[in-house]
Amino acid sequence: MIQYTVEKRINPMDKLNPKFYPKIVRAATLQTDEIANLLQSRTTLDKSEVYSFLKAFANAVQFLITHSYTVEVEGLGIFTPAIKAKAVDDLGDLTAKTILKKGVNFRPTAKMTTRHKSIGFEKANLDVEHI
């Protein structure tokens, strides 16, 4: 069950007609130690082995992404390297310097996406937020 509240947003192009949207109320984030406990309880491995796995997993993703590889993780999703670049008028001006940012995109598995279609929602008893 996901809790939501209502948020008021003002469009700078149409300030006289604000709109109201549902906004997620985030619960506390699960930290690495809690994740290790959960993974340990679901496997036959001990906690130090789970930590070793998590560290190696992070290293593997970092290595592959920075070598321009897409990374598929069964059960979780796909990590894809991405760049943000500015457009130029002349081909001669198109160099590596036009790349403004390097990053990574993530797409969950189809199974996870389908599973999330049946999530229930509950309105939290909070005041409308203004942004």
Partner: peptide, 9 residues
């Protein structure tokens, strides 16, 4: 509605 933080990732 919870986030999951994997240290290093």
């Amino acid at each position: 509605g919870r986030g999951v933080n994997l240290e290093g990732l």
